[in-house]
Computed example of a mutant assay.
Amino acid sequence: MNSTTTTAKSIATESSGAPPVERRWMSIVFLQGEEADTVIDMIDRNGPEAAIHHLSQWDYGDETRDAALVNGYVYDEIPESPTDHVIRDDGFGYVLTYNHHFGYVSLLRRFDPVLAGTSDYVAPPARSGFEKRRTARRSNGLRL
């Protein structure tokens, strides 16, 4: 980033007075195996909108958001592989990703880390906290 870009960015931020809107994606549900096969069959029969409607039943609003934050299922970008089918439902903020070959289905929802009506920032879970935990001893593997 050059100095002109940095200056323009800081002026825009200062003049608006509000932090830039940051969007993240949180996992609502991830299915694989037989459970995913059922949903993939639904997609093939009735279309991806039917699957989004079906999987959105696992979305419990703030409870889902809080669980995703605690468990680390929050992403800056939509997690997808080159062979995934990605279907966006911009009306409700959902994204369906599925893969016939690998047999999985995932529903994500867009959310803003800044809570509505406040200036409180919802930070993603710290990944660096793991080194503070005591780890279990690992063995060298199975011994015969």
Rank of each mutant, 00 (worst) to 15 (best):
residue 3 S to E: 12
residue 7 T to R: 15
residue 8 A to T: 07
residue 9 K to N: 08
residue 9 K to S: 11
residue 9 K to F: 06
residue 10 S to P: 00
residue 11 I to Y: 15
residue 12 A to T: 15
residue 16 S to C: 07
residue 17 G to Y: 06
residue 18 A to V: 11
residue 19 P to Q: 09
residue 21 V to W: 01
residue 27 S to Y: 04
residue 31 L to Y: 02
residue 33 G to S: 05
residue 34 E to R: 07
residue 35 E to N: 07
residue 37 D to C: 05
residue 37 D to P: 02
residue 40 I to E: 04
residue 42 M to K: 02
residue 46 N to I: 03
residue 46 N to V: 02
residue 46 N to A: 10
residue 51 A to F: 14
residue 56 S to R: 14
residue 62 D to F: 10
residue 63 E to T: 13
residue 64 T to A: 05
residue 64 T to K: 00
residue 64 T to S: 10
residue 65 R to S: 06
residue 67 A to N: 07
residue 68 A to I: 03
residue 70 V to Y: 05
residue 71 N to G: 12
residue 75 Y to H: 10
residue 76 D to E: 07
residue 76 D to H: 09
residue 78 I to F: 03
residue 78 I to L: 07
residue 79 P to H: 07
residue 81 S to T: 06
residue 83 T to H: 12
residue 88 R to D: 13
residue 91 G to E: 01
residue 93 G to L: 03
residue 95 V to L: 05
residue 101 H to V: 00
residue 102 F to E: 01
residue 102 F to G: 00
residue 104 Y to H: 04
residue 106 S to L: 02
residue 108 L to P: 04
residue 112 D to N: 11
residue 113 P to W: 03
residue 115 L to V: 14
residue 116 A to Q: 12
residue 117 G to V: 00
residue 119 S to E: 11
residue 120 D to S: 10
residue 120 D to Y: 13
residue 120 D to T: 15
residue 121 Y to I: 04
residue 123 A to T: 08
residue 123 A to N: 06
residue 123 A to H: 10
residue 124 P to H: 09
residue 124 P to K: 10
residue 125 P to Y: 08
residue 126 A to M: 10
residue 128 S to I: 13
residue 129 G to A: 15
residue 131 E to A: 12
residue 131 E to M: 09
residue 131 E to T: 15
residue 134 R to L: 04
residue 135 T to N: 12
residue 135 T to E: 15
residue 136 A to P: 02
residue 137 R to V: 15
residue 138 R to T: 13
residue 138 R to K: 13
residue 139 S to R: 02
residue 140 N to G: 13
residue 143 R to K: 14
